[in-house]
Amino acid sequence: MELDNEAALALANTNTPLSKPHLPGDLAMWFFILAELTVFAIFFIGFAITRQLYPDMFQQGQSYLHPAAGGINTFALISSSCFVALSLNAIRQSRHTYAAILLAAALLMASVYLAVKTWEYNQLLDLGYGLSSNTYFTLYFFITGFHFLHVILGMIILGFMAFRTINGAYQGGNLSGFESGACYWHMVDLVWIILFPLLYVID
């Protein structure tokens, strides 16, 4: 464990590959991340297969989405992920205040995602499209809603990490909890990276 923390600190100061492999965060979190990614993979494959079965319905459904909203959300989540990565780097250098500010910035960008997604849901509901309208909208609301819930959970985790950072936790190389939370947030970003072209880009 001691060596792991030294390796993590070395990573913060250089880009040189470490001699000893270091898995960031807790092993249990990685099993959780793998389970989540597997569920999303099943949704994505299901979406792709159903799209091939009902191409006209999916094309029509996609025409009601707002590519700009998808773009803004991608920008928000990528920026948020970047802030979290910078925050972890800062905390390894014992810059706790700066790390907390970066986490707050990450939360702000995540809030942008929630606001835009809520607006998009409202737009669709106003047009009369909901979860039970047709197969496309069932899958759309189910997949994006599931991801939406993951963003909320991730924000709670980031908020907890910020609170602990302000209160002087994560001292002396004890960063496993911080790294676990950061990796969970990057998983949320990773899922959106695949979801964005699937929903908004591929016609």
Binding site: A12, T14, P67, C82, P197, Y200, V201, D203
Partner: peptide
């Protein structure tokens, strides 16, 4: 040799540029 902070920012730039490229390709009707 870039430090890790600079690497994170460089990757951020890549991600934004690749997203724009992807969105542009998709927008060509």
């Amino acid at each position: 040799m870039l430090n890790h902070h600079a690497v994170i920012l460089r990757v951020y730039l890549y991600l934004i540029l690749l997203t724009i490229a992807s969105a542009y390709m998709g927008s060509i009707d």
